[in-house]
């Protein structure tokens, strides 16, 4: 990659991060809602941790952190994909296509923005909840793995949603997928352990990739540092990211070629 190309990708990434920071209406919900869920869960279901089958935890707060991280990152990543669709709608995408910079810049820029934001969200949730008694059993190394996991989760979701943005070119369509993400999240082990679930819910949660994504973060919060836990936290989003990037790159090529 030439220096000019690298500078172009950095500049477009910086723009994406700036655009997230300059929209408080976007930042606040994806930062505050997950915390709201944690607060609600901890105060309502605090004693649920003594239900037989519930993982061994010090507090419901420790259990809930993973769900809130994934929830926050999931919703935060919609922002970047929506911004990409808006770039197409407003014609900013055309403006980029008119420059001699690489076509992939617009996608890279938006995904880089999503990754920075996912990383920051993970740090934010941990820092805010520490004074309320949150403890990360796997220690600093585990926390670093979680931050990398948050970044990769943002990339994974961002890439899949970006493919949709590039296919449809419609920010409404991207935002319309919000309920779908909600369903994916609720039919997973994000808020309750699979061990205490029954019947159809259990079977859906067993099949839902979000369950395994959340459980990676969770084992790093409530358990000791282990290769399996780190691998789960990083490998699952990384695998989804690879697939997502493949689809979004194909969508980008298709959009550029169709014009």
């Amino acid at each position: 990659m030439s220096t000019a190309t690298a500078q172009q990708l950095v500049a477009l990434s910086k723009r994406s991060v700036q655009s997230i920071l300059r929209q408080p209406s976007v930042v606040v919900p994806s930062m505050v809602f997950p915390l709201f869920f944690v607060a609600l869960g901890t105060s309502s279901f605090g004693r649920a941790i003594s239900i037989p089958g519930f993982p061994v935890v010090d507090s419901f707060l420790d259990f809930a952190l993973a769900g809130s991280v994934v929830q926050g990152v999931l919703f935060g990543s919609i922002t970047s994909a929506t911004a990409l669709a808006t770039d197409i709608e407003t014609g900013f995408f055309d403006r980029l296509l008119l420059t001699p910079s690489p076509r992939v810049g617009i996608l890279v820029g938006r995904l880089a923005g999503a990754m920075v934001y996912g990383f920051a969200q993970t740090v934010f949730f941990v820092v805010v909840l520490l004074p309320f008694g949150l403890s990360i059993k796997s220690g600093v190394l585990g926390l670093i793995a979680m931050m990398v996991g948050g970044l990769l989760t943002a990339l994974a979701v961002g890439a899949v949603m970006s493919a949709m943005a590039l296919r449809t070119g419609s920010s409404e369509a991207v935002q319309g997928s919000f309920p779908l993400l909600f369903v994916l999240l609720f039919f997973s082990s994000a808020f309750f352990p699979r061990q205490t679930m029954d019947g159809i819910y259990r079977r859906i949660a067993d099949l839902n990739p979000v369950s395994y994504l959340v459980e990676g973060f969770r084992s790093l919060t409530i358990g000791d540092l282990s290769t399996v836990a780190v691998a789960q936290t990083i490998a699952i989003p990384a695998a989804i990211a690879v697939g997502g990037l493949g689809i979004s790159m194909r969508s980008l090529r298709r959009r550029v070629a169709a014009s």
Binding site: A4, Q7, Q8, A11, L12, R15, Q18, S19, R22, Q23, L96, T99, P100, S101, G105
Partner: peptide
């Protein structure tokens, strides 16, 4: 969301 100067700077980078 960008300022006029920021957009011009970005454009300068994109044209190398």
């Amino acid at each position: 969301l960008m300022t006029g100067a920021e957009l011009l700077h970005l454009q300068a980078v994109l044209y190398g």
